[in-house]
């Protein structure tokens, strides 16, 4: 019975399909065309322009721009901030998603909401908030100074590399946990409980049972976190004012561009191409991770 109906439906669909080939074909073509055009105008052309402009004056100028002291310093700060942000957020992201999905406790919903704050707060505001707390007038500054005195160090949390790192951590905070939470939730707690019943310690349960389930999601989260970390502008801009010392690549690009001379604009594009290169690497990694992750499921 059912089969017959299905067959009939198919037949009638085919008839209609023949009669209406043109509109059926045109709309998708049009949509596809618009999509591709949009993609070209909004993404490909600008990025190609960056590469083109950066190389317009020849490789020598390009090389000089890349090797400039300010650029190298910015690259260093960017890499430091990215690496620390990724490490810290991976650790906290793991802890937070583990707590949120494998245990039941009071205030769970609040914690879950708190994690998402960086998504909804503008990065500039986040940077300014740091400034308010740790800046010269900030309430936390005396304590930081006391700690510095005690440790005999001279760590400043704003207008310094640690400040840049903190701001970067703030904006990239949710990336890892947001990737992990759905996966851990879907997995449930049964396998962990089975491991516990067999006498496994917490760390063994995580390594042997939880980790294999989440490794691809974790890697994916780390990649997104890294991409966001080295591209961050607003939050870092608020706490970083010293070019050649605490500037990151995006800030350096901005400074070069704002300088306005033909030469500095070319340099700005050269430095931008570094960021584009990093993005492409991340994109390829992301693709590989997605592919591997899907295949294993």
């Amino acid at each position: 019975m059912k089969k017959e109906i299905v067959v009939k439906e198919k037949a009638s669909n085919q008839k209609e399909g023949k009669r209406g080939t043109k509109p059926h074909g045109l709309v998708p073509c049009l949509l596809l065309g618009v999509g591709v055009l949009f993609f070209l105008i909004m993404l490909v052309f600008p990025l190609a322009e960056v590469i083109y402009r950066s190389l317009k004056e020849g490789l020598e100028v390009y090389g000089a721009a890349i090797m400039a002291e300010n650029t190298l310093s910015a690259l260093k700060v960017t890499l430091i901030a990215t690496i620390i942000a990724v490490l810290v957020n991976t650790f906290f992201g793991l802890c937070a998603s583990w707590c949120l999905t494998k245990f039941d406790f009071r205030g769970k919903n609040i914690l879950s909401t708190l994690i998402d704050i960086p998504f909804s707060v503008s990065p500039v505001i986040a940077g300014l908030a740091y400034l308010m707390v740790f800046g010269r007038m900030g309430w936390a500054t005396p304590y930081v100074e006391k700690i510095n005195e005690f440790l005999g160090t001279d760590i400043a949390l704003v207008f310094s590399v640690p400040g840049v790192v903190l701001a970067t951590i703030f904006v990239t905070f949710p990336f890892v946990s947001r990737e992990l939470i759905p996966v851990m939730q879907a997995q449930g707690t049964a396998e962990e409980e089975a491991a516990v019943m067999l006498g496994a310690k917490g760390s063994t349960v995580f390594r042997k049972v939880t980790f294999p389930h989440i490794k691809w999601a974790l890697l994916y989260g780390i990649i997104l976190c890294a991409a966001r970390a080295f591209g961050e502008f607003g939050a870092v801009y608020a706490v970083s004012k010293a070019r050649g010392k605490t500037f990151t690549l995006p800030l350096e690009v901005d400074a070069l561009y704002m300088a306005g001379s033909a030469e500095s604009i070319t340099q700005a594009f050269a430095v931008s191409s570094l960021l584009v290169l990093l993005s492409i690497i991340i994109l390829v990694l992301k693709q590989i991770v997605e592919y591997r992750g899907k295949r294993e499921l």
Binding site: E191, E193, A194, M197, K208, P212
Partner: peptide, 21 residues
């Protein structure tokens, strides 16, 4: 006494076998 130390074997409802082992 924690679960793992009670000397109990547990067969879970949907078996909860370790999927990656």
């Amino acid at each position: 006494i924690p679960a793992g130390k009670r000397g109990i074997g547990f067969v879970f409802q949907n078996y909860a076998l370790f999927r990656y082992m």
